[in-house]
Simulated scan of single mutants.
Amino acid sequence: MRFLLRLLSLLFLASAVIVGIIDSIQSVASERVLLTPLGAALFSVNPDMLSAAEDYFRSHISAYVWDTAIEWMLLQPAFMVLLALSLMFWLGAFKRQPAAGRFAA
C-alpha cells in the first residue's frame, strides 16, 4: 500500500514539475506571469473527462460538493494542486522511525 501511495506521489510531483515548467516558459515568452488553472490543464489532456466527472459528482455524491469544492479547485493553478496532492500521498505513505532507534529491543 505504501508503495502505491509513493508511486502516486511521484507521478503527481512529476506532473507538477512539468506544468510548472510550461507555465514558466509561457510567462517568460509573454513577459507577465501566466498560471494555468487545473481545469484548463485537465481539459487540454482530455476534454470529456471534466464533463464526465461533473455528471458523476452531481448524480452519485452531491451537487453541493461539485459547486463548492471541486469548482474552486479547478480554478486554482495546476502546479499548486498537483504539489498538494503529491504531498498528501507522500504523507500517507510516510512511516515514522521508532523513537528508541533502529536496533532497540
Rank of each mutant, 00 (worst) to 15 (best):
G20Y: 05
L38R: 04
E31L: 15
D23K: 06
A14L: 15
K95Y: 10
P47G: 04
M80S: 13
M80A: 15
A16R: 03
F3P: 06
Q76P: 00
A99R: 11
I18A: 15
A69L: 13
Y64A: 13
V17P: 00
T36C: 10
L35Q: 10
N46W: 03
F3A: 14
D55Y: 07
W90Y: 13
S44G: 10
L82W: 03
T36W: 04
P47Q: 08
L85E: 02
L38G: 06
D67C: 03
W72N: 09
Y56H: 12
F89A: 14
L42G: 01
A69T: 12
S51T: 12
F43P: 00
D67K: 05
R32Y: 07
S51A: 09
A16N: 04
A93P: 05
L11P: 00
L5T: 02
V17R: 02
L87A: 15
L82D: 05
W66I: 10
E54I: 04
M88V: 15
W72K: 10
L87R: 03
L4V: 13
V81R: 00
V28Y: 05
D23G: 08
S59P: 01
R32V: 10
P98G: 07
S27F: 04
A16E: 06
L34D: 04
L34H: 08
K95M: 12
V81I: 15
L8N: 07
F89L: 09
R96T: 11
I22Y: 09
S15T: 11
I21H: 03
L50F: 08
S9A: 15
A29D: 05
A84H: 01
I22F: 09
I70V: 15
Y64P: 00
V33A: 09
L82T: 03
R6A: 13
F79H: 12
